[in-house]
Computed example of a mutant assay.
Amino acid sequence: MIARLWHGTTRLDRADAYSTFLGERAMPDYRGTPGNLGAQVLRRDEGDVAHFVTLSYWESEDAIRSFAGTDLLKAKYYPEDESYLLEFEPQCVHYEVRSAG
């Protein structure tokens, strides 16, 4: 199993709206992709910025490709992200899951 982590930031005053967007648009996209084993959104507020991490689990690299494209580590963005994110980090981080409980 592969864990895929993406990080993004938004202004704190836009964080609740972005959280809603992620739940309504991004999470169904993740979870609806064959080979996705689950996805979560994590949020941490720090000063006037909110940090978001999406943590998704995949059965294979092929499953990730069907979600994100041929470049496995390239971050996937949605058109709506333009109105929320402070920057666009180009890559995600992958980890091989060694134990789960």
Rank of each mutant, 00 (worst) to 15 (best):
I2E: 05
A39N: 07
R43V: 08
F21W: 06
A26K: 11
L72P: 00
V41K: 00
E24K: 05
L12V: 01
R44S: 15
C92E: 13
L55C: 12
D16H: 02
R14Y: 02
D29P: 09
R14A: 04
L37G: 00
S99H: 12
I64R: 07
S60F: 13
T54V: 14
A75N: 07
A17V: 01
T10E: 06
D48G: 06
I2N: 12
E82V: 03
Y84Q: 02
G32V: 03
W58V: 09
R25P: 05
A63I: 14
A17S: 03
W6F: 13
T33C: 14
A17P: 01
D81Y: 00
D62K: 15
I2V: 11
Y18P: 00
E46D: 14
E80C: 06
L72Y: 06
T54E: 09
T10D: 03
A50T: 03
R43D: 09
R31V: 12
N36P: 03
Q40Y: 15
E96L: 14
H7K: 15
A39M: 09
D71G: 14
L22I: 00
Y77D: 05
G38K: 02
I2M: 08
A15S: 03
K76F: 13
L55H: 11
A63E: 07
F67M: 12
A75M: 08
R43G: 06
D71P: 15
R44N: 13
G35K: 10
A15F: 01
G101Y: 12
D48K: 00
E87G: 00
Y77H: 01
E89I: 12
L42R: 03
R25L: 07
D48R: 02
P79C: 00
V53Q: 06
G101I: 11
G38H: 00
R43Q: 07
Y84N: 01
F67A: 10
K76Q: 14
Y95Q: 04
A100Y: 15
E89A: 07
H51A: 13
Y78Q: 06
V97K: 11
V93A: 06
E96A: 15
V53E: 09
A39R: 09
W58E: 05
H94K: 04
